[in-house]
Design a protein around this nucleic acid. Structure first.
Length: 748
DNA sequence: GTAGGGTTAG
């Protein structure tokens, strides 16, 4: 054999060499037994040439050539040969099935498998892994089960690699059928997470003893108890670390977290130590449970074993830390990871964005592009919320263009984030247009759109979307319900809001949480039903300062000082440092002319060392954000803006404008109050916007606090005078001012 | 030949 192959090597490396027919025949025969002797694609082509020269019609030789080509993943060459075969022999089928699979052509791979069975050829252990991988990829459980039956009949279910592939297929596909179980299991495990069973899990070096001790008290069984994954695993006579890791990853991804962790403990008993695959599979569990202590222990183990150079482990660690709100640790892990890919960048970017570090997220995103790392679809869905929160429309639009050029605009994660971004940037119509084009909308897409309508005051659209979502078989979760309650709240629809609130438990199985109480309290408060709001909040077991503050704010609008004092004391009970509440209370006193009390509250604040955030507005002009803070004169065009405001003022007064000074909370005379109103940040931002953009351009301004009554009146007039649409987002909603009117219908 | 990481609404 060795000498035959030696001749072959000589022949292949020197195709011009003359070989006798006998020699070639011997060579090919030897190759039939050892196709692996061919070590490069070019040698494979030489072999093909020899076959064409000496025996082109032999199915056996042709199959051998296909086999050799498929070893080098050369699909086109394999196919050319395969198509010449009238009735392909087993080897040809096996090779082509594998070749399709390694090239990601799973449909064709399975079709060839079906052809092979129909032609009476018997598959063997060499094809099943590819076939099972194809079933997993195509989410075809029925075919997978049929293949499994075939494997059992052939007695192949004890074969190590086939068994591993079976486990993988079931792990990937069972999650589809068992999503309901999964949810139940998740809650169950969550309840038990604080118990000692998981404690000290990774205390030392995952030693046999420490893992063993954790097995005591393991009590739960889940959907996985008699799952196909488990059955296959238990049937196998030999198992390797891949078998264990596949089951562990499957359990982790299917929400069987306790099972996954138990198996990590058990694998020690089989003489196997957790490796990089094991760790990257279980780290997301600690990320989900926000258990940074366990996550840290794993990080320690990772470092001790030198696994910290692995990209997968690094991304899992970055993700774990950011889910646990330790962004600094995420960034640290990212920075010391020399090798980086799209996913590790995505992890750190998403970590920043999810923790509110929008600018840092954007900076890292730009750095990623600079480093020539090609962004994937996940990169965009991770960064887009930063644009939504910062309301940087131009940046959002640029990213949208990039997304379209990449062909990612049909991705549901991305389009949902776009719906949200456009809605939050004031472009509700664009949001609606994108939403309309989403195929396979999920709960998040619907909720983003519903919330968008809510923010713009389009409650009826929000309600009809909500009902349509239910008709399409999507059961609302707690976020969707928050969105619909917010919609009702922003339109003053008390009855509708109350109905959704009262029925949410019965109809959707969701108990009202803080966010739902907040929306309802807001609904009553805005409508002036202050006592109803008070009653509702009082029924809560532990109302927060934030919820009481909604009512306090309404007390200011509806000028109810007595209730305000009562509410304020409730707030200071649970949250003595609450800045907003103290500011509000002082304003309420000032509004009532009780300047002494107002001053007292301010004094208390000063003594406590707390300062209120100043009112500010900002506007994006030519990709630059201009910020205007109340009474701040630092803008380079400050004087020009003042002149423009005075000119506007004259035209407004001609149109009948009379300043409403009732909300000016300073102890000064009316003339001074009028002057103070000019200084309101949104007015200066709008004046600047008018000065620096072409006639007719829509002005978009964002403000950090509620818009005051006088500004609301003034902006309505300004929109008419300058003939422009002016969109102002305050801290809770959008106002579209057009031709002297506002979309909020005086309700905000 | 089989195994692992990152994403959208609040």
């Amino acid at each position: 054999m060795a000498s035959t192959l030696g001749v072959l090597e000589a022949l292949l490396r020197n195709p011009g060499a003359i070989a006798t027919k006998l020699e070639v025949k011997q060579l090919l025969k030897a190759l039939l037994k050892r196709p692996g002797a061919i070590t490069s694609a070019s040698e494979a082509k030489q072999l093909h040439a020899q076959i064409l020269k000496h025996n082109p019609s032999s199915p056996l030789y042709t199959s051998t050539a296909i086999c050799v080509y498929s070893n080098f993943k050369l699909l086109n060459q394999s196919l050319l040969l395969f198509k010449t075969l009238q009735s392909p022999p087993s080897l040809a089928y096996k090779s082509i099935i594998k070749c399709y699979a390694v090239n990601g052509r799973f449909v064709e791979s399975l079709a060839s498998f079906v052809d092979m069975r129909a032609s009476g050829n018997t598959p063997d252990h060499s094809v099943f892994p590819s076939v099972l991988k194809a079933c997993a990829f195509l989410l075809d459980l029925r075919l997978g089960e049929a293949v499994h039956g075939c494997i059992i009949r052939l007695g192949m279910d004890v074969h190590l690699i086939t068994g591993n592939a079976l486990i993988n297929m079931y792990a990937k596909l069972q999650s589809l059928a068992e999503s309901e179980w999964r949810e139940r299991d998740r809650r169950k495990v969550f309840d038990g997470m604080s118990e000692r069973t998981v404690d000290n899990l990774f205390a030392s070096q995952l030693s046999q003893e420490s893992l063993g001790s954790c097995l005591d008290g393991r009590s739960r069984t889940g959907a996985g108890a008699d799952s196909s994954v488990k059955k296959v695993f238990e049937t196998m006579t030999t198992r390797d670390i891949i078998s264990w890791n596949t089951v562990i990853a499957g359990n982790a991804q299917n929400g069987l977290h306790e099972d996954a962790l138990a198996m990590v403990r058990e694998m020690g008993g089989a003489g196997l130590k957790p490796d990089i695959f094991t760790l990257s599979a279980i780290l997301p569990i600690f990320a989900q449970y926000v258990d940074v202590d366990k996550g840290r222990e794993i990080h320690g183990y990772v470092i001790r074993y030198g696994f910290d150079k692995d990209l997968y482990v690094a991304s899992s660690l970055i993700n774990m830390y950011s889910r646990c709100a330790r962004v600094e640790d995420s960034i640290r892990v990212f920075k010391i990871t020399r090798q980086r890919d799209t996913i590790s960048w995505n992890s750190v970017i998403a970590g920043c964005v999810q923790n509110g570090m929008f600018d840092e997220g954007l900076r890292l995103f730009r750095q990623m592009l600079k480093d020539n790392v090609i962004p994937g679809s996940v990169s965009f869905s991770s960064i887009m919320p930063a644009c939504a929160h910062l309301t940087t429309l131009n940046l959002g639009k640029q990213l949208h263009g990039y997304i379209m050029r990449c062909g990612f605009d049909d991705n549901v994660f991305i389009s949902s984030s776009l719906v949200d971004m456009y809605a939050k940037c004031g472009h509700i119509r664009t949001a609606g247009w994108i939403f309309g084009g989403i195929k396979g909308r999920d709960m998040v897409s619907w909720t983003a759109m519903i919330m968008g309508c809510a923010l713009h005051g389009y409650a009826e659209d929000a309600i009809s979307l909500f009902e349509q979502m239910k008709l399409e078989g999507i059961r609302p979760n707690h976020v969707a319900i928050t969105a619909i309650l917010t919609a009702c709240s922003h339109a003053g629809m008390i009855d509708e809001g109350r109905r959704y609130f009262d029925r949410m438990t019965e109809e959707y199985g969701i108990r009202p949480g803080l966010e739902h109480y907040a929306a309802m309290a807001d609904l009553y408060s805005r409508k002036g039903k202050l006592n109803d709001a008070y009653q509702l909040i009082s029924t809560m077991t532990t109302p927060t300062g934030t919820i009481w503050s909604l009512l306090l704010s309404a007390c200011r609008v509806h000028k109810n000082v007595d209730l305000a004092e009562k509410v304020a004391s409730k707030i200071f009970e649970v949250d003595p440092e609450n800045i907003g509440a103290r500011v509000l209370l002082s304003n309420i006193y000032a509004n009532d002319g009780r300047w002494k009390e107002a001053a007292k509250v301010r004094m208390t604040m000063r003594n406590m060392g707390i300062r209120k955030n100043p009112a500010c507005s900002w506007i994006e002009v030519k990709n630059k954000i201009h910020t205007f803070i109340a009474d701040d004169k630092s803008h380079p065009l400050h004087d020009e803006i003042n002149i423009a405001l005075c000119e506007l003022q004259e035209k407004m007064e001609l149109a009948g404008y009379v300043a409403d000074t009732s909300e000016v909370l300073h102890d000064v005379d009316d003339e001074q109050k009028k002057y103070l109103l000019y200084g309101h940040s949104e007015r200066r931002a709008i004046a600047f916007g008018i000065m620096s953009t072409p006639a007719g351009t829509t002005i978009r301004v964002i403000k950090n606090i509620r818009i005051c009554v006088d500004c609301h009146t003034a902006i309505k007039l300004i929109s008419k005078i300058v003939g422009r649409e002016i969109v102002v987002r305050d801290n809770s909603r959008f106002h579209h001012f057009r031709d002297g009117e506002c979309s909020c219908g005086e309700y905000w």
